[in-house]
Amino acid sequence: MTKFFSFAAVGLFSVAIVGGALAQQSENPAVKARKSLMSLYAFNISQLGAMAKGEAEYNAEVAAAAANNLATLSKVDQSAMWPAGTDNVADPSSRALPAIWENFADVGAKGQAFAEAAAAMQAAAGQDLDALKAAMGPLGGACSACHKAYRAPKE
């Protein structure tokens, strides 16, 4: 009887370990890649944002470098990063809504709008602080346009 219990306990324990591992490692490489790309966007925007907010002194070279990075990142070909079966229903580690796969044309148009906002920031960031500040609004708007339509809320 004790043997049975220890078997059961080992069994449950294994299920718990595998389950826990699954929850942590379920990320598809494509999901990881697009999250990494988002992190790179955010890091470069943080350089610009710190100057826009007055947390960092305006530096034309630093601003231009960040904006150049962002513009380059906005042109990365993401076609392999969004395979079928990586929406938030199939992969709970993702917040990408299934609607993305039903509206690829619109997603592409919103991506293009982001690339344009990034290009506008690239043109503005090295000019002066006012130009940088003015480009922040449209840049954020382009991010939100896609997130509003195609990203599940947190929690």
Binding site: G137, C143, S144
Partner: peptide, 23 residues
Amino acid sequence: EYLKSGFTPDYDSAGGEMVEVIE
């Protein structure tokens, strides 16, 4: 800055109903 561009201090973008508000 959040009310202007929707960027949070982590440079994520606003979510939910606040996207409409920030527009």
